[in-house]
């Protein structure tokens, strides 16, 4: 059990947790993740470590409430406990001084991009950050990114904030005006695929962080397998980061939708439980 030191929403349905986990905080490097369970009947879900504080022995994770587990997680407050937490898992990001590096985060993907952008900056890169959101409220970590990046461009699909358009539109603009040496893209699968397609003609090294369904996160089950360079890889031990130009995004999309029916059932159950809870509280 790991204590939650602070918990706050930073965008609709997106919550930032600072969790006591000294062992993980000490070892974790950019790009690595944890697996957690919210309760004793809960599933194991992977979440990237957004930041850590070795002195205080804490790690930061940022979760978007999409399914039952993430919604239950987002109901936890400071002082509550994470039921199970294990990590740091996966291989750390490969960091070097590439020259000009563009970090692209779509939605909550920015939380995963942030530690890697920070490490890229520390390695001497000129770092440009593109932060994408559906609308203004969904643009996260802008001030944090501004502190570590040379240029920061928020984009929104509806134009309510920053550049109006997709992150790829902004990227294409940069590609046509600047020499870019490295691109990191983390977000929805279709976004990562679009970024890979955009940089491919330029031959720019492009890395994506994959987020498949996982169970153990240590290579034991093979559930998180993906197709990269026409070969099967286990994202938990071989990744989570891969060469974007070699990832088969269709396989990833397909495997991530496998439990869609069950996910709906779980979410319905969560809503019912929540309604009951609210009804009970009203009775009291």
């Amino acid at each position: 059990m790991n204590k939650i030191i602070s918990a706050q929403f930073i965008a609709p349905e997106v919550k930032k947790f600072i969790i006591k986990a000294p062992e993980i905080a000490k070892k974790r490097k950019a790009g690595q993740f944890v697996i957690l369970r919210v309760n004793e009947k809960g599933e194991r879900i992977p979440l990237t470590i957004a930041d850590s504080d070795v002195e205080n022995g804490t790690i930061t994770i940022i979760a978007q409430g999409v399914g039952k587990t993430t919604k239950e997680l987002n109901r936890l407050e400071s002082g509550d406990y994470i039921f199970d937490l294990v990590g740091p898992l996966g291989k750390p990001s490969h960091i070097e001084n590439f020259g000009v590096a563009v970090s692209i985060g779509g939605g909550v993907g920015t939380a995963i991009a942030y530690p890697i952008a920070k490490a890229l900056k520390e390695a001497g890169n000129y770092v440009i950050s593109i932060i994408g959101g559906r609308s203004k409220d969904y643009v996260i970590l802008e001030s944090e990114m501004k502190m570590i990046c040379d240029e920061v461009y928020p984009t929104t699909d509806d134009g309510t904030y920053g550049y109006k358009g997709f992150v790829t539109d902004k990227l294409k603009g940069l590609l046509s005006t600047k020499k870019i040496d490295f691109v990191l893209a983390i977000g929805p699968i279709l976004m990562m695929k679009a970024v890979a397609d955009a940089t491919r003609p330029y031959g720019i090294k492009t890395v994506v962080s994959l987020n498949p369904i996982m169970i153990d996160g240590t290579g034991m089950c093979g559930g998180c397998r993906a197709t990269v360079n026409n070969k099967t890889v286990f994202v938990c031990v071989d990744g989570p980061e891969f060469d974007a130009h070699k990832v088969d995004f269709e396989v990833l999309l397909n495997r991530n939708k496998f439990y869609r029916e069950q996910e709906k059932i779980s979410l319905e159950m969560h809503k019912c439980q929540l309604d009951n809870l609210i009804a009970k509280q009203k009775d009291m």
Binding site: K41, R44, Y259
Partner: peptide
């Protein structure tokens, strides 16, 4: 024991 337990398996 899905959905009492959260982890699903193909039906």
């Amino acid at each position: 024991n899905f959905p009492e337990y959260d982890t699903p398996i193909f039906n």
